[in-house]
């Protein structure tokens, strides 16, 4: 093809590539938009008040709508009757378990990252640990569920069954009342989710620490700071914004997990919110899973409504992460 110059060829190639990129991007966005739309439409029945719905779809006056959100959906417990069902227990359970997971996973994960990145000698052992953590991050979460079931829910049968526990601490009505084994309680759930997110927290925190230029560590050490002072006063503060961003994303992962908790055997119908660390709980993704599995159409609608709520929560998490990244992250050199 001597008719087409090299330059024209290059331009054509460039255009074709650009078109391909545009196509795949817009296809992705389109699919996502369709998905969100269909969930919104399905879920709208239980999410929005009837006056708001009729104002938009029927013949009501938009200006006269006093109540848009159907708050009962958020404040009711689950029910056999779709019109009465709500996600209160699931939302509270999700928050509780997420907080417990964060309190356990963040100190442990960030501490591990600091040790591995700043203090550990670089030898065969630490290489092996590193390799294992990377692999654990890729293990399907349901596998952690099985681990959680044996280690936390049943505790290898060491302390009797969870219905008939052998050991307990604290008065029955205290929030920190704990029984061994943990059964299907909050602590078992939080610990299991901790297993799921720990590798993610470690890896993202290590990356954040690694991004701190080593010239800063050298400067600190050369002034006579000890390795610990250098890590705590220079490296960690410089890495905190990225560490927090990673931590929040890990927590949103924990928030969205259903599989490991399913293996633990947590209940769906809960008529009260948890009183103590051993109390039963349920979570949003599990509630969604349960509703979606029922034959009746109204339960599918309930599931869609709960998905919308879950998505809103996750978008908030991600929003905070993006905000932190933008606002707190300063240039380091």
């Amino acid at each position: 093809m001597s008719g087409i110059s090299l330059r024209t060829k290059r331009i054509l190639k460039n255009r074709a590539f650009l078109a391909l990129c545009l196509f795949s991007t817009s296809a992705t966005i389109l699919i996502l938009a369709l998905l969100l739309m269909s969930i919104m439409v399905q879920g709208s029945h239980f999410l929005f008040s009837s006056e708001a719905l009729s104002a938009v779809f029927g013949h009501g006056e938009l200006s006269q709508v006093t109540k848009i959100i159907r708050w009962e959906f958020l404040s009711n417990f689950a029910s056999r009757f779709p019109e009465k069902a709500g996600i209160y227990a699931a939302v509270i359970g999700s928050l509780w378990v997420c907080v417990i997971c964060a309190l356990l996973a963040l100190p442990l994960g960030i501490g591990t990252a600091i040790y591995l990145e700043e203090f550990a000698p670089k030898n065969r052992w630490t290489a092996l640990i590193d390799f294992n953590i990377r692999n654990l991050a890729g293990v399907p979460s349901i596998v952690y569920g099985i681990l959680g079931l044996t280690a936390f829910t049943r505790m290898f049968g060491l302390f009797g069954s969870d219905k008939n526990s052998a050991l307990s601490f604290g008065p029955d009505n205290a929030w920190w009342h704990i029984q061994l084994p943990f059964g299907q309680g909050l602590l078992a759930g939080g610990l299991t989710l901790m297993l799921v997110v720990l590798p993610i927290v470690i890896i993202s925190s290590r990356e954040a620490l690694r991004a701190v230029p080593s010239s800063l560590r050298q400067a600190s050490l050369a002034i006579g700071a000890t390795p610990w002072q250098t890590a705590s006063k220079i490296t960690l503060p410089a890495a905190i914004p990225s560490i927090l961003t990673g931590a929040i994303l890990a927590m949103s992962r924990a928030m969205g997990e259903a599989a490991p908790l399913l293996v633990l055997g947590i209940p769906v119908f809960i008529a009260n919110t948890p009183d103590n660390l051993n109390d039963n709980f349920t979570v949003l993704p599990f509630q969604i899973f349960n509703w979606a599995g029922r034959p009746q159409e109204s339960f599918h609608q309930l599931a869609a409504s709960a998905i919308v709520v879950l998505l809103v929560v996750l978008v908030c998490f991600n929003g905070v992460a993006v905000y932190l990244r933008q606002k707190l992250r300063k240039p380091l050199a």
Binding site: S215, L216, Q218, A219, S220, L332, A333
Partner: peptide
């Protein structure tokens, strides 16, 4: 010690 590339703390 003073290094080749200025390395003030952030």
């Amino acid at each position: 010690m003073v290094f080749q590339k200025p390395n003030p703390f952030p």
